[in-house]
Lab assay of single mutants.
Amino acid sequence: MEVVDPQQLGMFTEGELMSVGMDTFIHRIDSTEVIYQPRRKRAKLIGKYLMGDLLGEGSYGKVKEVLDSETLCRRAVKILKKKKLRRIPNGEANVKKEIQLLRRLRHKNVIQLVDVLYNEEKQKMYMVMEYCVCGMQEMLDSVPEKRFPVCQAHGYFCQLIDGLEYLHSQGIVHKDIKPGNLLLTTGGTLKISDLGVAEALHPFAADDTCRTSQGSPAFQPPEIANGLDTFSGFKVDIWSAGVTLYNITTGLYPFEGDNIYKLFENIGKGSYAIPGDCGPPLSDLLKGMLEYEPAKRFSIRQIRQHSWFRKKHPPAEAPVPIPPSPDTKDRWRSMTVVPYLEDLHGADEDEDLFDIEDDIIYTQDFTVPGQVPEEEASHNGQRRGLPKAVCMNGTEAAQLSTKSRAEGRAPNPARKACSASSKIRRLSACKQQ
């Protein structure tokens, strides 16, 4: 084909351009004929944790799935940006308080904090938690009735009371019990989460009196709706648990309003109706937990002794299953770290194939690490110290990083047969305790 000078094309009309061969290198194709290559998922490591896909996002930050490269346990990490926390009232204080509380709590029905990582340079905090497959609110939203069968609701409620009793025994008032803060594992274990607005009572406090509340409006008791200066913290949790039980068994809320002012007005009056299909035992329990006067409201001991709580409820309806993943529609909620794991395991070791967030990740503290002497050669063979940054567990980050890069360049065919977990650990520049 004859090559045409581009400067001469402006002298031709459209018809003349076609005659000189423009149609031979300008093609129009339908979008259905285009085959897009999927974007390669680059592996990203935060300390010893391999990052997966997004699980959810809230006002405080994002939650992603991660894999512990040492234990191969599935975890969830809450990623918090200090810049964003400053824009939220009491944001930083709530996060630090939640970390302090979770560090000393150990119960099967309370979410466990596994690790805390802090990135000084990017001003990011990573709260590594045990993995929960789904939230209770997500399960309720997945069915038209917006409720659980009585047998399933009873099982979840009993676990909620177990976890709540443990928190109260530790002198902690949750203040925000609701389905949105109750998570579930694949085995059906309920976990109380989000202790950001919780309050730890003084060890020598005479009672459970509280003065502040930041919980969700629909789950607040009349004493808070009416603006009382002080109130019983434990009875606030009992009320919120009662509203939660009402919601998961009926699909409704005892109090509603077009806006928060109308909602608080209705809560302050204390008038509500219980659907007739709840039955006398459940209705009596709800009335005891939603008692207007805090002094007359049920205690956890009274809830445990109630006939509806103690009764064994046979399954009359099919239980609400864990819904498919909202993004991938995966009904099994498979591990989202698998594509990243395959990338590390299947590809040659190259620095361009993975990302390490930083050479140094500070753990379990908000301060910069200490310094240790770096050896410097002298005339008599002895070495003197220069400062060298280290990880919180004493690992020399720069030395590990250099060693990792040197190993990656060394030709050794046997290394390709290593397991995925050992490869992740070798790529991680800074081991965590």
Rank of each mutant, 00 (worst) to 15 (best):
L228R: 15
I88M: 05
E293L: 05
V368E: 11
D208R: 14
I177A: 01
G381V: 03
R74A: 01
F354R: 13
N380V: 07
P319R: 13
E375P: 13
E121D: 04
T363P: 10
M125G: 06
Y126L: 02
L400D: 08
V128W: 04
C418E: 14
G61H: 11
G196R: 00
R40L: 04
V368S: 07
V63D: 00
R425G: 14
S325R: 14
A410D: 08
K329M: 13
E374P: 11
M139L: 08
N412D: 13
I26M: 15
P321V: 11
R42T: 04
I274M: 05
K311N: 04
G394H: 15
G408F: 09
S428Y: 11
L160F: 02
H345R: 14
M136E: 00
S169T: 09
P144R: 06
N380L: 05
Q159L: 03
T230C: 08
M22P: 13
L50R: 12
R409L: 06
L72T: 12
G276D: 10
D207L: 04
K329R: 02
P321A: 05
G135L: 13
P280W: 03
K388G: 10
D208N: 11
R87A: 01
A397T: 13
A406T: 11
I238M: 04
I46V: 03
V150R: 08
S19G: 15
G279E: 02
I424F: 06
C151P: 02
P254T: 05
W332S: 08
H27R: 06
S213P: 10
E357R: 11
G227R: 03
F148R: 00
E374A: 05
T363D: 12
V133W: 02
M392Y: 06
G408T: 15
V143H: 12
K311G: 10
I248C: 06
T336D: 01
G268L: 14
E375D: 14
L85C: 07
Q364I: 09
I88R: 15
V390C: 06
S240P: 00
F354C: 03
E65C: 06
K287F: 09
E357S: 13
G268N: 06
I260E: 00
L201K: 15
L245I: 03
I356W: 15
L9V: 02
E376V: 06
G56A: 04
P281V: 08
A198T: 09
Y131S: 08
G251W: 00
Q7I: 15
T32H: 15
R87V: 07
Q170H: 03
M51S: 04
H379K: 11
K423T: 14
V66R: 00
L72R: 02
L160E: 01
I356S: 05
L195T: 15
F148A: 01
V133D: 13
T209F: 03
V197M: 00
G227L: 03
P373T: 07
L182E: 00
Q112V: 06
K62Y: 10
E165R: 08
S271M: 12
S378A: 12
L80A: 08
L263V: 04
Y362W: 10
L195R: 01
K423H: 05
L285W: 00
R425P: 13
Y253C: 02
D365Y: 11
E342C: 08
K403W: 13
G381S: 10
L67P: 01
G242A: 04
L9A: 09
C132S: 02
V114W: 04
S59T: 10
K312D: 12
M139A: 11
V243T: 09
S232L: 06
G257S: 11
R409P: 14
P89Y: 03
P315L: 11
A410L: 11
K269I: 09
N90T: 03
G381L: 09
T71R: 04
S271V: 05
I88E: 13
E65D: 10
I224W: 10
P179F: 01
D30E: 07
H168V: 02
H202W: 02
M18G: 10
E199I: 05
K178F: 02
W239A: 02
Q214L: 06
P280A: 05
P280R: 07
E317L: 10
W239G: 00
K96W: 03
E349Y: 05
E317P: 15
A417P: 08
I322Q: 02
N259T: 10
L17V: 10
D284H: 07
F231L: 04
R211G: 13
E199Q: 05
R86M: 00
L344G: 04
S232N: 09
R415V: 14
P339Y: 08
M125H: 04
E138I: 12
I35G: 09
S428I: 15
E145T: 13
D350G: 09
V236W: 06
E317Y: 06
C73T: 15
D352K: 13
Q220D: 03
H306T: 13
Q123A: 07
D284I: 07
M335F: 10
G58N: 03
P275A: 03
S419G: 14
L102Q: 12
C151I: 03
S240M: 05
P369V: 08
R301G: 12
L55H: 12
K191N: 01
L285Y: 00
K262T: 06
Y36V: 04
S193E: 13
V3W: 05
A205D: 10
M127G: 02
S325M: 01
C391N: 02
L400H: 11
L184H: 05
Y60W: 14
C151A: 11
Y292W: 03
T185P: 01
L164W: 01
V236I: 09
T189Y: 03
H379G: 07
S142R: 04
P411E: 15
K311D: 10
S213L: 08
K44A: 14
I361Q: 03
A93P: 15
G15L: 12
A377P: 11
P314R: 09
D359M: 14
D258A: 10
P324T: 07
T24F: 11
I172A: 06
F148Y: 05
L80N: 05
R211L: 08
R426Y: 13
P149E: 13
K82A: 11
R40T: 15
M289E: 00
S213C: 04
L201S: 04
L50I: 15
D355H: 07
L17F: 05
Y166T: 07
T249M: 12
E376R: 11
P411D: 14
L263W: 00
